[in-house]
């Protein structure tokens, strides 16, 4: 039985691409960099795989924040996937703003396979920023007053 957390530590879902960001996060691990446990990672082969539906699913399932991390522009393992991601995220960000989910809860970052420290820093920063904002608690949002 998993007990829901009482101390409002944010739950952030991270979608990381296999070739750059996921490896970068692994590097943070092999380098034993300590950072917040609040980001939980879903591995995809390329950020170009990320359907906006996944992000909506994360928020509607209780995530307080979502981060997408992929290869730097020009370095995509599949050539251009991250450019498509940029386009989709630009649109998704506008939609989320209209839905009342503000930009701080949704980040797009470029993390290369060698940037373990950057990943750890991003995770910590985002967790701190969202903790300050408070939980999103989307299911509460659906309840009647």
């Amino acid at each position: 039985m998993v007990v829901p957390s009482d101390n409002h530590e944010p739950r952030i879902v991270g979608f990381l691409c296999n070739w750059c960001a996921y490896q970068g996060a692994d590097l943070a691990g092999t380098s034993r960099m300590a950072y917040t446990p609040n980001v939980r990672i879903v591995r995809v082969m390329c950020t170009g795989r990320i359907d906006p539906t996944f992000v909506l699913k994360a928020f509607s399932s209780g995530a307080d924040g979502v981060i997408i991390a992929g290869c730097h522009p020009g370095d995509c393992h599949y050539s251009e996937g991250n450019y498509k991601t940029t386009r989709r995220i630009a649109f998704l960000r506008k939609l989320l703003a209209q839905m009342g989910i503000d930009g701080e809860r949704f980040r797009l970052e470029w993390v290369s396979a060698g940037e373990g420290a950057k990943w750890a820093q991003i995770a910590d920063e985002m967790s701190a920023a969202i903790k300050e904002k408070g939980p999103l608690a989307w299911r509460e949002n659906l309840k009647e007053a």
Partner: peptide, 25 residues
């Protein structure tokens, strides 16, 4: 399709003919 709006959004964004973040904005 699980979420119609999400898919439509993805399709619309995907067909934009630009790699330039400012242009996309």
């Amino acid at each position: 399709v699980v979420d119609q709006g999400g898919k439509l959004l993805s399709a619309l964004a995907s067909i934009i003919d630009s790699q330039d973040p400012d242009e996309i904005e």
